[in-house]
Nucleic acid binder design. Structure first.
Lengths: 212, 212, 212, 212
DNA sequence: AATTAACCGAGACGGTACGTCAGGTCTTGAC
DNA sequence: GTCAAGACCTGACGTACCGTCTCGGTTAATT
């Protein structure tokens, strides 16, 4: 049972309602917790976010609805935790080689966007499927900002090494790369990932757009 | 923007059910039709797409629910028609000046994305809020593809005039621009549109990323 | 009348869906159940059966529509339970005195028919207001047949005691009495109950029709 | 087309909305009128009264809904006219022979009650399926009262001829007969008409109940 | 013969009620 | 004191009819 990551997970715990100790009483059943997460994932893939109902998840997990509400505050909250392993993107490394670092970061980005679960969740968050702004903020700070910060750092290092233009608008460069990947992976009818990272690298480092 | 395609076809009518003659019978009441569209727009802005219910629209429009179902097949169908004026983006012009054409196209794109109604609808369509694939296809062919085609044409003309590299991968260039705009206008917490079009133009024409 | 069959079976429960134990889970809220029955009765008296809508009952009872559907399968089902106390007619007693037994039975019949709630429900059942034949059958077996059987028994005892003609067609006699009461109480514009039981008794026992 | 009785019909016309002359203008189309009545009858037999909708009748008759409302004021109004031939019961004759007159009257009553259309309409009227009291009154005065009056007359003649007891309570006798017939023909699960008229005659004339 | 008013079919209109479903909360008895 | 179960109220869903209305077209009596 359970998609696991019980030990690896700083971000996956982000959505849980403080399960910490308060006196006696029966502790939470970890089997229920895992079963709910599993059921959430499979249901998500099958029905997408808007048609995922907590009742169906409860039924599949063999769990009472109230148990879900006890563990998570909302549907998005639950989904974010269930999808956490698919959303975890890591950080851009620092090897001393600008091209290698950026290339690694772009590969992380592309493979994350290419994950069906991630795609479903990203759209759900962007589309404001839940009116709760705090959740969007949590999503940003857990998955978006760390990667952006480390990519920005990588670019700054590239500037320092003269691999990139002096005083480069790093934010623009990051948005350009992220936006292009988003567009080619998630928006066009069929994902176009062949050579994508390399094209972006060439554009970034040499200002050359790809040719046919 | 977007006095655009007034002559090519009436996209606002695209969602209506059988708008033309079927024998005798009382014709549609244009007052009801208009009231529903108005109520849809204001409700959309207030509640976003997922919380927009047809019942509330009917109440606001002072109209029976059945009338809405008589005019439109689904919620997305209705919303697409109501939002049509906000989504109409026109086409990239052909003035003989590459920079001017692309600049105009980017301005169209940015101002469309900056429209709150457009943003709500675009997310709703992208996020697959309705399982109906035909609607997504209708959206693409009505709003996305014509602009992309005309922007691609503009780039091809730029290639022919040697303003752009020979054998430029036009699709990539378009996705790069669209993706960057999407990212900066719709995804980051606060829209970043200052100089956006100009930055993209410089990158496209001269391979130079903006500086701080 | 009709403290009657308190011990034979609880007819008021006849219409309830699965009223008994199925594992854990929150039990039915008796306050909701009772409020719905009360609202049904008052609405029935005010609007008669065909204009009684479950939506209005729900509104009056301060209850969700779904709760009604959870407790009863149909409108008639609900009405039958709400009206049960007004329909309960008891059985014809066995005192050893034919005249007294039949007289008691007729009084039961007349006062039941004279109850406005009973009248409304009886007509609803007879008129086939619900296409469900099983409900009509339930009504018959709960209220009609027991009384008829006990009245038939009383007449048989009267035959045995020579108070009534040998080989009397008991079914005919019962239908004659029931039909006459039905006609005089429910069909004519103003109920005509004065002397009704006595007239029927005289006709039954002595073959004499009443005079003016 | 049309169940006819266009010429015989005092009562059938009772429900029509004064079609009389006011200036020029097209007169009512008798084909539409007849088609509606036909569709009403077949629909009535198939769906019973409560499930008979004017929309279905209009569809079957190939007629606009408004045409029905132009001709009749209400559903019961329409049904009463469509069913008129099945409800027409005639009057008890005056042959000088009490037994023969009453027998004829009972036969009329029994065969009317045995008509499925009549049964459906009678129940609809009795059950108060329409809150309009005037319609019930119209039904009474058109079908019920004339027959009752003529039957009462026949009984009075029987009293005068000493075939019946002096000062007989004629109203009671009529209700007894009508009620018994109603009960045996319309209420019991299977109609019991064998010997019914004869049994009632024997009871009326000789005070003897039937035997097995 | 032209006019004209009421007819006709069709069906849109604002409503009410239907029976179902899911949301989020609350309650019970078992563990 | 958490668990599964499930009842509770709320409110939206999409459909069916209601009774009224408005069309364009037809038809017969009145001019």
């Amino acid at each position: 049972m359970s998609t696991g990551n019980a030990e690896s997970e700083p971000p996956s715990r982000a959505g849980s309602r403080v399960p910490s100790g308060r006196g006696p009483g029966r502790p939470r059943d970890p089997r229920a917790h895992g079963a709910i997460l599993d059921a959430t994932l499979t249901t998500l893939l099958e029905f997408w976010y808007p048609s995922l109902t907590l009742e169906r998840v409860a039924r599949r997990a063999g769990v009472g609805k109230a148990t879900i509400y006890r563990h998570w505050e909302s549907k998005l909250d639950l989904v974010l935790e269930a999808a956490a392993p698919h959303l975890a993107i890591g950080v851009v490394p620092d090897t001393g080689d600008t091209r290698r670092d950026v290339r690694e970061g772009l590969d992380q980005l592309i493979s994350t966007y290419a994950d069906p679960v991630a795609a479903i969740v990203i759209f759900a968050v962007l589309a404001g499927l839940e009116p709760d702004e705090r959740l969007r903020e949590r999503f940003r700070s857990a998955y978006v900002l760390p990667w952006r910060a480390s990519m920005s750092d990588a670019l700054e290092r590239g500037v320092a090494r003269r691999d990139l233009p002096a005083r480069l608008d790093v934010g623009f460069a990051v948005d350009m790369m992220v936006g292009t990947v988003f567009q080619r992976v998630l928006v066009v009818p069929e994902p176009l990932v062949d050579g994508l990272a390399e094209h972006l690298l060439t554009l970034l480092l040499h200002g050359r757009l790809p040719t046919r």
